[in-house]
Amino acid sequence: MSQRQEKREAHSRSAWRSHLGAYGFMAPAGILVIIFFLIPVAIVLYLSVTNLASSNFTSDLARMEFIGLKNFRTLFNDQFARKIFFNTIFYVLVTLSFFNVGLALIVSLLTTHIDRNAGFFFRALWILPRITSPVVYILIWKRMMAEAPFGIINQFNEILGQPTFNYVSTNPWVFVVLVNGFIGVSFGMIIFTSAIESIPRDLLNASLVDGSSKLQRIRYVILPLIRWPLLFVVTYQTLSLLTSFEEILLLTDGGPGLYRTEVWSLTAFHRALSNYFGNAQWGYGSAFAVLLVFIGVVLAVIYMRVFRFDELVAEPRVEAL
């Protein structure tokens, strides 16, 4: 072996050794992703091409009957699939923009611009919906919204001589978005607040010295500096909302009427896991879940492109200088 080759091999070994640490650090997260994402996706993908139901249920993959794309054909021929799809888009867009990102950002900015203890108190209040059990949380909402004489809001309406309403029936989307939005605010609020708090004071003070108003400081200093947390919250919360359904299940169960508040993940649950008369359709429900995974992955890639993820995770230029 020539000296040159020996050198090259030694270099390669040293490069592998130097990367070993990085792989080691990534391994726990990688293993978790494989166990809790890749393997379940593969299983759901397989279930979606079978006719698995309670009436032929088995956990043995080899015994499941392969039916090709029949479930997907049934899904695309379903007269309500389009409605449920657009319900999902509406629900995610409205909840995300008004609450999970919009209100979260406003609460963070407001509570970081007032007395520190007061800010802490208000943020703690906003965390309450998140830490309350979903069932208890929805019971509280249901008790508030119930029709007269049972609901609290309607009791006030009666006292004030106003007409009473069955709010779940008349304004289901308003309450579905409010119920989920109040929970969603806390996540973005915590991330944004910590990001704002970590901006060097020098930068914030310098902008004031330069004559900027508080609004200008938010627009030109704070928001650009929290772009990375914004990307993270938008991406994470989009995917979270896409798959969340438990509050809708407990509040409206997708109704009233013809799938008025039914979202895609709730349909997957209804088909695969929950049916009043039993005989759940695991295979068909999995077809809904597979499409949800596909949409989630596509959206994640789009977000990374739009927010220029590569640049955000690049070496910090300040330290590089």
Binding site: S54, F57, L273, S274, N275, Y276, F277, G278, A280
Partner: peptide
């Protein structure tokens, strides 16, 4: 439990 959950419990328990 609700009927849907109750029935699924039995299906899953049977297979297990």
């Amino acid at each position: 439990a609700g009927w849907g959950d109750y029935k699924n419990e039995f299906v899953l328990a049977s297979e297990a």
